[in-house]
């Protein structure tokens, strides 16, 4: 079988990606799994949820994150590029004054932070933001 140069380079890149990027590839599947476990595969709207995260975080050990989804009953935070995608889930009770919560999280490196809100009517909303991290927070 003959192979074009383009195919050869492509295979080489795929092998390199599999070799160096394995945790990330494994994690993409894990992210989808975590999202599916929360939403049951439902469609997600992009509005009605605000995720506030720094564009550049100097220290990946403590990255301030704020999420606000008016009317939501639960909000899940995910970090796509961490060894484990789940970060935390906020479940709001009847005495909650708003659907806003903020916390500080760890990020292993530059990656996308995902927030998904579950509304009382069973619909879902999501927001994503990319965060660049100067010093990773997983102490590899």
């Amino acid at each position: 079988m003959t192979q074009t140069r383009r195919q050869f380079v492509g295979t080489g890149l795929a092998v390199a990606a599999a070799f160096f990027g394995l945790p990330h590839i494994a994690n993409a599947a894990q992210l989808e799994e975590a999202i599916a476990a929360f939403t049951g595969g439902a469609d997600m709207a992009g509005d009605g949820i605000t995720l506030i995260a720094p564009e550049i975080a100097e220290n990946g050990n403590t990255v301030p994150i704020e999420v606000d989804a008016p009317g939501a009953e639960a909000i899940m935070l995910l970090a796509a590029g961490n060894p484990q995608a789940d970060v935390c889930t906020f479940n709001f009770g009847p005495a909650a004054g708003s659907r806003l919560a903020s916390t500080r999280i760890r990020l292993a490196g530059e990656q996308e932070v995902v927030a998904i809100a579950r509304m009382p009517d069973g619909s879902f909303k999501q927001a994503r933001q990319n965060v660049r991290v100067t010093i990773g927070g997983c102490g590899g």
Partner: peptide, 26 residues
Amino acid sequence: FNGELVIDVTIEPAVSTNPYFQFDAT
């Protein structure tokens, strides 16, 4: 608050050392 749930957070290892939470209560 007075026995009524305000917030219940499920926490994974990705939450930082000295976990901090801020939220509102009615």
